[in-house]
Amino acid sequence: MRTWIKASTLFTIAGLTACSSSPTGRNQILMFSDSEMSSLGAKSFEQMKKEIPISKNKKTNAYVQCVAKHITDTIPPQPGFTEWEVVVFDSDQVNAFALPGGKIGVYTGLLKVAKNQDQLATVIGHEVAHVLADHSNERLSQSQLANAGLSLANVALGASEYKEYQQVTMSALGLGVQYGVILPYGRTQESEADIVGLKYMAKAGFNPNQSVDLWQNMGKASGGSQPPEFFSTHPSHSTRIKDLQATINTLPAYNVKAPKCG
């Protein structure tokens, strides 16, 4: 009975108090406050800084900081934090991320694929867009509601049957957790971050056309090993490029002097 009450409470809270809209007008359920998300982001970031080597290369750090600053300077003050923190991690991973609370991480491996400042700005703009669109909050809220649903299934199926299907169900829901707050984004969120992030980087003076070159580089770097789009949480490179080209054609002329970061 307690499980049913708990689940019912979660759904009631979500339905009454957590409705919101994303930057592209999607309906979202956000169950956590800005301060809660910023706290989670900060704690996760501190943990990562302890566990992953941080680059000491002054030139690389200055370059990444410059690109990131030009983008974040175009963004109005955000609830939950006052400053953006950027850290370059010394890792071969071709990746970057941004966490609630204004935390940005860039792996040095990305700089081998993002070959100029405009391509790097594409990635950073994309990751910052995840934060400003509350995608982490959305994923955590979905996880919370899904766990309530799984609790209901536990009661309906019985503990032994539920245990047998739990791992498969959790995987299907994308509930893997790393460093506390990093949950995999879905294709809709990834596509949204592409569109919103492109606007941020263009507004900062970077060349949006380089976003297409970036994803062509990504495709080459993957060696054609990317799984079909249907089986992936990320859009395929071809879909991403098509959507980016369509967005570029709608961007206003910002008339901003191009940054000189590298």
Rank of each mutant, 00 (worst) to 15 (best):
R2M: 14
W4S: 14
I5Q: 14
I5S: 10
S8P: 02
F11A: 04
I13W: 12
L16H: 09
A18C: 13
S20F: 05
S20Q: 11
S21G: 04
S21Y: 15
S22T: 09
P23R: 06
T24M: 12
D34F: 00
M37Q: 07
M37G: 01
S38C: 06
L40I: 02
K43W: 12
S44Q: 10
E46M: 11
M48K: 02
K49M: 14
K50G: 11
K59Y: 08
N61T: 10
C66K: 04
A68P: 04
H70N: 15
T72W: 08
T72L: 08
I75W: 09
P77M: 03
P77G: 08
P79M: 03
P79L: 00
T82Y: 01
E85A: 03
V87F: 05
V87Q: 09
D90F: 11
D92R: 10
V94G: 07
N95S: 06
A96T: 09
A96G: 12
P100I: 00
G102K: 02
K103P: 00
I104K: 02
I104M: 01
G105W: 09
L111H: 08
A114N: 08
K115T: 14
D118K: 10
L120P: 01
L120R: 03
V123F: 03
H126C: 01
E127C: 03
H130C: 03
A133W: 00
N137I: 02
E138D: 13
Q142I: 09
Q144C: 14
A148Y: 04
A148I: 10
L152E: 06
A153T: 12
A153I: 11
L157H: 05
G158C: 14
G158S: 12
S160T: 13
S160R: 14
Y162L: 13
Y165R: 13
T169C: 06
G174K: 06
G176N: 15
G180C: 03
V181I: 15
V181P: 02
I182N: 14
R187Y: 01
R187V: 03
Q189A: 04
E190T: 07
E190F: 09
L198T: 06
A202R: 06
A202T: 15
K203L: 11
A204F: 13
G205Y: 10
F206H: 07
Q210I: 05
Q210K: 15
D213A: 12
L214T: 05
W215K: 04
Q216M: 10
Q216D: 13
N217W: 11
M218E: 06
G219R: 05
A221Y: 08
A221F: 10
E229Y: 02
F231P: 07
S232F: 05
K242I: 01
A246Y: 03
T247E: 15
I248R: 04
N249G: 10
T250G: 04
K257E: 13
K260N: 15
